[in-house]
Design a protein around this nucleic acid. Structure first.
Lengths: 143, 143
DNA sequence: ATTAAAAAGGATAAAAAGATCTTTTAGTCT
DNA sequence: AGACTAAAAGATCTTTTTATCCTTTTTAAT
């Protein structure tokens, strides 16, 4: 479904968001331990999320990553879009460029339903809401 | 969503199925033209589909690819499974191995709905039914 | 039998994704 | 100021995916 980058990126963003609700900032090493991802690779992904203004990085001792209050409203779709592009929830299932309701591929009408569900889910779910859910019931981000 | 191999493979299988309903067998070169895919690469994919007994290949002059009658019932999920594995419609959206209802990732319950829709669609749609649909209304397999 | 068409198989190449390492920059603390 | 810490940036390496090429095998038609 998503690339490895995107899986790690979502896990990282969610972890940082959840820690942010507890007023903690978290270091790269903590993040990669807690989400069980390769540290150096995760650093690259966090750089992208930082450049795209989704997470905030703080350099120096006691630095780390956090998410600013207004950015807690970031939707999962934005994270996915930065890391994988939006074709997963906008593109044709068979990889055609010209596929739409007017000239559909043979799967178009079956696919569009799934795509749109995915899109709705990603576009309506914020980091904040997931973080809040996590504070209520225990979920996993490793293994 | 799917790998390139899988996109080409689905398009090829659908094209062959549709031609099979018209009692035509089709050569590799025709297939790659009609679905707009790289020929040599498509050959490799068709080999996989042949080995997995989804399409039938006929060697020699006037040979080509066709689908045997009972194999027209093949579901899209089987094609996907051969080319990409089944993790796209069985795995965790965040890439976790141990994610299930008992120890869910934070997206589990939102994701499972989409995954299951995808799964149902792929498992309930046969090559035959798509081929028949194509004979009724025009759809595209190129571009 | 010979020829020609077509798929199969093997080897290789190029590009992208995944992952690591090193150097630089920015910041904190004493 | 100097020592230290942590992320950013850049360079590099590895693996996987995508893609091509070339040879071999099969087989139908003449």
């Amino acid at each position: 479904m998503f690339s490895k980058s995107c899986e790690y990126g979502l896990r990282a963003a969610i972890f940082i968001a959840q820690q942010t609700t507890q007023n903690n900032k978290v270091s790269l090493s903590t993040i990669s331990e807690e989400i069980n991802s390769p540290q150096a690779f995760t650093a690259k992904i966090l750089q992208q999320l930082t450049r795209n203004d989704i997470v905030k990085s703080i350099k120096g001792p006691y630095g780390g990553f956090t998410i600013e209050e207004d950015k807690m409203e970031t939707k999962l779709s934005e994270v996915v879009s930065v890391l994988d592009g939006d074709s997963i929830y906008t593109g044709c299932g068979l990889g055609l460029k010209q596929c739409d309701a007017n000239s559909p591929c043979p799967l178009h009408f079956k696919f569009i339903e799934i795509r749109d569900n995915l899109r709705d889910m990603l576009e309506s779910t914020s980091l904040k809401s997931i973080a809040n859910d996590m504070n209520l019931e225990s979920t996993i981000l490793k293994r």
